[in-house]
Design a protein around this nucleic acid. Structure first.
Lengths: 334, 334
DNA sequence: CTGAAAGCGCTTACAG
DNA sequence: CTGAAAGCGCTTACAG
């Protein structure tokens, strides 16, 4: 059991001990070049002696810069976003930022509430997964002083800056890939999400140039995970004629389809081909290895950090839509 | 491009507009019962009109309560901790807390640095995955006013409160399970982590009561993921006699072993049995379904929230070691 | 290179 | 039920 009465050391305590003013101690932390070497040494000693830890709440209030960045994601588990969040935390912690995490896909945790919270914490930057469509929320974000980064999509008019790729183009490229490889009857399997629907629509549009059979499809409720592939596979198998390739909304689903297919003796890709999405680690490691669409989540994190740095140093940010692209990685499964 | 000059509304602005003092507006937010209905109504209108968002930096400074909780995990991807973090964010956001995320397993991101950051942000609660052994760090945490929660383990002397289970007991129970099921030659496959080593040691100790053949083992460097099972499986296959059961440090590894085994025509569990760890969703969904050790990550989150509530309301916390237990879930793979 | 002092936007004990 | 005022722990323009 801890005693909770102890008073924490303040800047003043350090100052007194080191025989300087608190302003100088503050400079020691934030602008060290400007303090004399001998003074710095005395301050360092004092800090160590009393175990001083700066209060960033007070610092943030005084400077109007919280060094806090809010990362808002739909989900963390079974999700393509976990990698990006991890990369983001790594990238931004190194720059001295603290990442506050908001999960918007849980019950009672609306995006709206999470944004309100980020605003109240005076986050310097708010990173949103997806595109904000609600005008009320858009305006609230615009009025704030925070840098707003919409990720994973490229809206026509970003609130501030968008870092992502064209889901439409992904649909087109997958359609072409399928056609080039000679598959005839694609089946689309994905979550009922806005972004997935955009990919679906453009895939179908492009596919209609090659073939008259419209792709069949299975839509899943969110959150989607590995096991949901089981029911979907049963459905696919009952189709007549059976599809010859399943285009999945995630690598996890792709993996599930492969496991199911193999368990009934189908060969992948000969009897049924599979394409994933996200190119997670598992795509390259599954047997067979999974053909997937690579989205460089770490790059989203990196570019985010760059944009933030530009903002912090007052440089102008010329592009407000940054396309990080994507790439179909062909492997054994399709 | 946003204009960044706009001044944000303050409590005072609301007060002026509503014709009250800022103290009353503050009460409206923090202690609504105490303000008159008519006054509250005027304040509400004013808040909406100017789009006021409270500044929690200032609030936290004034109250010495940040409503910030730091969650420190080794990894997020391919990790058993993602579920707990997600549950934690859900649980704690609902209580009005903000979760700041620290990832300690990345390069340059030591636990030490993350703790320092949490302390500097004046987090009310710091949740650490694992046990802190460094005395220097332990003392720093003890001196702070934050509630410190060590999770996943049950140290003899928690810094403050520990919520977890006995890794030793897990080892013992697995050994007994293996023996009961009649397996003869267990192989241990896990990450080179402190906690895994504790499980390993106690498993071996218990196993020695049943058999003279010591378990063989493969230790992997962190971070461990699905694909690492490939090399491990090759190693296992070369053993003579070959093990008849592989005890894995994660479900993801278990899955990997199953995929590898099947790809060379081995039957699971008849030719090679597999046990996972964590009982993630995938354990129940894989084919064959995976026998695993269930750790209730969501419960860790729930209990954490309870402890925090007790602390916040000044109730005494009688237990400082809370055992959430574990359970072997027997399925098809072993 | 350093200090005195005002200010960041809240909260709350005190008084009424 | 409400207000005036002090205080939370920093930073920084200004002056030296």
């Amino acid at each position: 059991m801890k005693q909770t009465l102890s008073k924490q050391a303040r800047l003043d305590d350090v100052a007194r001990l080191a025989g300087v003013s608190s302003a100088t101690v503050s400079r020691f932390f934030n602008n060290p070049d400007v303090v004399a070497a001998a003074t710095a040494e005395r301050i360092r000693t004092a800090v160590d002696q009393i175990g001083y830890v700066p209060n960033l709440l007070a610092g943030g209030l005084a400077t109007n810069r919280s060094r806090l960045v809010a990362a808002l994601v739909p989900h963390l588990t079974n999700s393509i976003f976990a990698e990006t969040v991890e990369a983001m935390v790594g990238e931004l912690s190194a720059e001295g930022y603290t990442v506050m995490l908001g999960v918007t896909g849980l019950i009672d945790q609306t995006l709206d509430a999470q944004i309100q919270n980020a605003l109240a914490r005076r986050a310097d930057t708010i990173i949103i997964t997806g595109i904000v469509t609600d005008d009320e929320v858009r305006n609230r974000l615009k009025r704030s002083n925070a840098t707003i980064i919409e990720t994973w999509g490229l809206p026509e008019y970003p609130i501030d800056v968008a870092i992502g790729f064209s889901h439409e183009d992904v649909g087109v490229e997958i359609a072409r890939f399928i056609n080039t490889r000679g598959y005839q009857r694609p089946h689309l399997l994905s979550a009922r999400s806005k972004r997935a629907m955009i990919r679906r629509d453009s895939l179908c549009r492009e596919w209609s140039k090659f073939s008259n059979n419209e792709p069949t499809e299975t839509l899943l409720d969110i959150p989607v995970h590995f096991g949901r592939a089981r029911g979907a596979f049963a459905e696919i198998r009952r189709l007549d004629p059976m599809p010859d390739i399943v285009v999945c909304g995630s690598d996890s689903l792709a993996q599930g389809i492969i496991v199911e297919a193999k368990s009934v003796g189908l060969r992948v890709p000969d009897d049924l081909a599979v394409i994933g999405f996200g190119n997670s680690m598992i795509a390259g490691e599954m047997r067979p290895t999974i053909t997937s669409v690579e989205i460089d989540g770490a790059r989203i994190a990196r570019v985010t950090a760059e944009v933030m740095k530009k903002r912090a140093t007052g440089q102008s940010q010329d592009e407000n839509k940054i396309d990080i692209g994507f790439r179909i990685v062909a492997r054994e499964s399709a």
